[in-house]
Amino acid sequence: MSLIKNLIEYLNRIRLENGIPHVSYENSGVSSFRVNYMLREQIFSHYDKNGIHPCYYFTKVGNYYGSEEAIGYAEYSQPWLREGVTVINTSKKIMYNMVYNDEESDWGHRDTLLNPCFNYVDISVAWNSRHIYLNITMIAKWIHWDVYPSIDKGKFYMRGKLLEMRPKSILIFRDIPNPCYTSRKYYDLGKLIAGILPKGFMYKDIYTITAKKYRVDEELEIEFSLPTQENGILTVVLIAEDPRGIKWEPKSGKSINQCPILTYAFKSDGH
């Protein structure tokens, strides 16, 4: 924990230098899973070997909030035992470069780490004599759940209380896993296939699913039927507006004050 605490303190120092509130530690389980997977499989990628994106694993290990992943890697030409100080210093250097020298990734790492929407973080590091893998999972934890998001007989349901954020849209993305995705320097959730709205409303440019229940004030209650014949990895994304007025300047094209407070991903066989 001292290694993780050290890295979270360093991340918060960077965020505060940029006028962004600090994050708290969340032991989500996904960061540890992801770095150990990369170390074991000797693969540095946001995707697993089958081409499945990290939001799927964030949900699979039991997290029902919004998340984004940043990963880093260091390789040494000569093998030797990596003690804790070396691992911490190398990880800090990776984090620094993610924020201040991220042109090659179009500043995506920077904007993930600095985004004020994220109020929690999970960080893990795995290493051997030649390699260090770093995973930073930024988490937007703004819902107090009464009923966790779940799927039963083709119907999606969730109920909870909203903390500060103001929901704006509920969208569904579909991704077909492909092993070639491991070579990507980025990840996404796939193609936008549907949006959820209450009765009487329609999206102009995407397929609209009419919700059976749709409450998005201080209380959140959503129920709708999932689209049929859509196999692959589906992700339900709840996007909210951040009313706190925190000023920051994303460089990767992200929208200011638009927060993904739920990224619920699951496998669908299309039935």
Score class of each variant (00 low, 15 high):
3 L>R: 00
6 N>K: 04
7 L>H: 06
12 N>Q: 02
19 G>R: 01
32 S>M: 09
32 S>H: 09
37 Y>W: 14
46 H>P: 03
48 D>S: 00
54 P>D: 02
55 C>P: 04
56 Y>P: 00
58 F>H: 01
59 T>S: 11
73 Y>C: 02
76 Y>S: 07
80 W>G: 03
80 W>P: 01
84 G>D: 15
85 V>N: 05
86 T>Q: 02
87 V>H: 13
91 S>I: 01
98 M>C: 03
100 Y>H: 14
107 W>E: 13
109 H>A: 06
111 D>F: 07
112 T>K: 01
115 N>F: 11
126 A>G: 08
132 I>A: 03
142 W>F: 09
150 S>D: 00
152 D>C: 00
155 K>F: 00
156 F>I: 07
171 L>I: 11
176 I>K: 10
177 P>Q: 09
182 T>Q: 11
189 L>R: 02
191 K>T: 05
192 L>A: 09
198 P>Q: 05
198 P>R: 02
200 G>K: 01
200 G>R: 01
203 Y>D: 12
206 I>H: 06
219 E>N: 14
219 E>G: 13
228 T>G: 07
230 E>R: 04
231 N>C: 13
234 L>R: 06
235 T>N: 04
236 V>D: 13
239 I>P: 01
242 D>S: 09
244 R>Y: 10
248 W>Y: 14
248 W>N: 13
249 E>Y: 15
251 K>E: 14
263 T>Q: 03
